[in-house]
Nucleic acid binder design. Structure first.
Lengths: 117, 117
DNA sequence: CTGCTTTTTCGATAATCATGGAAATAAGCT
DNA sequence: AGCTTATTTCCATGATTATCGAAAAAGCAG
């Protein structure tokens, strides 16, 4: 992920309505949520929500797909993952020991391979 | 980390000079860098750099300490770590399998316990 | 105290952003 | 075609942000 992409993603998430929207979409993966439902769920006018969705889209954090009259939005978790890597690599590149605790905290919550076999 | 803190940190990093500054400070942990050197390194006027440093400080991402005439700035990696956890927990909370790949990519770069014994 | 260095604060300007009313577009239904 | 629903675009407003010149503050040395 290049710097400009990262900045766009950071800026997109640095606004409460957009952050709430993105988190709501992540929770509703992979079905997605229509634009109108998002506006209603967050008590935001349709046009305001629409412009926030456009910002998140431009940042690549969400994708949309028309489904008859509704437009379904979905979170693109890959971009979130890349953004996280982008941020973490700065601190790991310089001093790996600083980020050990991060892995330690992250692993119990979402280890790549569950312990149950 | 609460939402407002996260938004402040995201907004602070969503600007190229500030992002560059923060990355430079992370690279220079734990010695830190004086404000003037930061301005010079990034070719930014002193007062402009000063206001960016104030923004990063308010977001908790950096700390400052006077050392005779200079003011030394240091990155606070804890806040970066908490911000990362904040972002990742959204996707892990909803669907842990989405974030397995993140751990997988992160571990080789900065595993909590080095393989060499 | 005067002069020098380093950094911040003040203040102004231009640019970008958030918000939402009103109109436009798109899709389906009768 | 006309009518309803869902969403976006257009446009104007007020608010916030980025930038930087000029002046102020904080510290050190003579």
């Amino acid at each position: 992920m290049d710097t400009n992409t990262a900045i766009a993603a950071l800026a997109a998430l640095a606004q409460s309505t957009r952050l709430d929207t993105f988190r709501l979409l992540v929770k509703n993966e992979p079905e997605g949520v229509p634009a109108g439902d998002l506006a209603r769920a967050l008590s935001v006018p349709h046009n305001t929500m629409s412009s926030h969705l456009a910002t998140l889209s431009r940042a690549g954090l969400i994708r949309s797909e028309r489904q008859s009259r509704s437009i379904i939005y979905r979170a693109d978790v890959d971009v979130l993952r890349n953004l996280t890597l982008f941020l973490v690599k700065d601190c790991c590149g310089g001093s790996p020991e600083l980020c050990g605790p991060l892995i330690a905290e992250l692993t119990p919550c979402c280890a790549p391979e569950p312990l149950r076999s």
